[in-house]
């Protein structure tokens, strides 16, 4: 009996989560004049919101900008993160402790303090309105370094010793020996980095002004805030749907990994 009550509560709560998404998708396909009374289905479907949006903003271009930036950042974070993580977990050198403290310092530092100076650096480097501004500051991620360091510690030293005897260079050890044995860590870091980069808005808003270089969330934000949607709700919602779609599609396939990754960072804090 109590079980039944639990199921009813859970189903009701899930509706609170599913229905807004459902409404958003349907609303983006509804003629503008029916939006104010839409609850489940419009009298007919139309693509006019999407057509108008494509006409007003370079959303496809921004999708590829976002994709390029997110993939570059993820690749960089994986490569540099594993290099530093390896040095910290498996090699001995002077200053190792110092590097570790610098990482902890960076992790505890609120980003609010570095935001303004970082923007000034980008200006002085002449990187405003360039992909550099979106990619280079993010290539190094302290959380990724720490996660790689932890994971590499769990890999048997014998494996590394054997590779050294075979004459493997350190880089070869990292990418040919350790990587294939660290798939869970790589997947976690890749998902977290990709998602964070894909969804980032504040930084792009600051360093990108050229519409053709904007990332997708940035373009959609400015579209929703600025006057160009001409307070046409359907058009705004259509841009929001397109922005949500890529991540939701990834989520449908990799749902378990998404949840595990997010939980593992939560537990690290």
């Amino acid at each position: 009996m109590r079980k039944a009550l639990f199921y009813i509560i859970l189903i009701m709560i899930s509706l609170l989560f599913i229905y807004p998404f459902y409404w958003m998708v349907i609303a983006s396909l509804t003629p503008e004049n029916e939006l104010s009374s839409l609850t489940f289905l419009p009298s007919y479907f139309t693509l006019s919101s999407y057509i108008q949006m494509f006409d007003k903003i370079p959303i496809i271009r921004s999708f590829f900008n976002s994709l390029f930036v997110a993939l570059s950042v993820t690749t960089g974070v994986l490569i540099f993160g594993s290099m530093v993580g390896y040095a910290l977990s498996r090699l001995n050198f002077k200053g190792k402790k110092l590097i570790f403290y610098l990482i902890i310092f960076t992790m505890t530092l609120p980003f609010q303090i570095t935001l303004i100076p970082q923007y000034i650096i980008i200006v002085k480097f002449g990187w405003v309105d360039s992909y550099y501004a979106l990619i280079i500051p993010y290539l190094m991620n302290t959380l990724a370094i720490i996660m790689f360091r932890q994971y590499f510690k769990s890999i048997p030293q014998d494996l590394i010793d054997a590779a050294r005897i075979d004459g493997c260079s350190e880089l070869r050890i990292i990418f040919r020996i350790l990587w294939p044995n660290s798939i869970p860590a790589i997947v976690t870091i890749a998902i977290l980095t990709f998602m964070a980069t894909w969804n980032e808005v504040l930084w792009p808003l600051i360093v990108i002004r050229d519409e053709h270089l904007m990332t997708m969330p940035q373009l959609v934000t400015l579209f929703a805030v600025g006057g160009r949607a001409e307070s046409q709700l359907g058009v705004k919602l259509a841009s929001a749907v397109l922005l949500a779609l890529p991540i939701i599609i990834c989520y449908l396939f990799l749902q378990k990994y998404f949840i595990q990754s997010m939980v593992s960072t939560g537990l690290k804090e």
């Binding site: 998404f21 969330p217 998404f258």
Partner: peptide, 15 residues
Amino acid sequence: FFMPVIVSGVVVTIL
């Protein structure tokens, strides 16, 4: 319940 977590804050806000 996890779905809004992965979606951009911009999407949730517009909605």
